[in-house]
């Protein structure tokens, strides 16, 4: 009964890890589309929240951008409208979005203080690190383990919270 798999054949390229299903045209008028991973065990509304946060971190979404309309998400993913509303409310509570009556939901903050070119540069150096890790004989799980452990150490040494998840640095960057 995995409906996701049935839709995947229409998937857009670069849709990610292959575990999730592209969802058609939720993104009409919005820079992003939502996908659902039925096997992840993560509640549907949280999946939507995470995808917006992820898109914000990677610069796919910027202040002023519109999120897909609730109706479009419902139509594309066949999920309960209340689930989408809950996700959007959560994003609003986090200060990341704001609803505009009659128009929709818009991004008003960013999670990334880094510009797209900077991100591309950082990604390149990370790819370089990955190549050397592979050359040293690490497999994917090994790389993830090493990176996660280094990441934990890095932030632990700095006393924990700083720079961790959800410190939406851009909350003061208003929308034009």
């Amino acid at each position: 009964m995995d409906i996701d798999k049935e839709i995947r054949t229409e998937g857009r390229p670069g849709g990610g890890d292959g575990e999730t299903a592209p969802a058609g045209r939720t993104g009409a008028g919005s820079p992003v589309e939502f996908r659902l991973d039925a096997a992840s065990g993560v509640p549907t509304y949280l999946q939507l929240v995470h995808q917006v946060e992820h898109a914000l971190r990677l610069g796919y979404l910027k202040p002023g951008d519109q999120l897909p309309k609730v109706r479009d998400v419902v139509a594309a993913l066949a999920i309960n409208p209340n689930t989408v509303l809950k996700a959007y409310k959560e994003l609003e509570t986090k200060g990341l979005t704001a609803g505009r009556p009659g128009q929709g939901t818009f991004i008003q903050a960013t999670l990334s203080q880094v510009t797209l070119p900077e991100l591309a540069g950082l990604r390149r150096s990370l790819l370089g690190w990955l190549a050397s890790a592979e050359a040293a004989g690490l497999d994917e799980d090994g790389m993830v383990a090493l990176f996660s452990s280094a990441l934990r150490d890095f932030f632990n040494r700095r006393g924990g919270s700083a720079g961790g998840r959800g410190t939406a640095g851009g909350e003061t960057e208003g929308v034009a």
């Binding site: 009964m1 995995d2 409906i3 798999k5 049935e6 839709i7 609730v70 109706r71 419902v74 139509a75 594309a76 993913l77 066949a78 999920i79 309960n80 409208p81």
Partner: peptide
Amino acid sequence: PVARHDFMAAVLTAMAD
């Protein structure tokens, strides 16, 4: 599966609308 998805999408869209 596709018809199921489309049917439920239609029901839920009516709810949203």
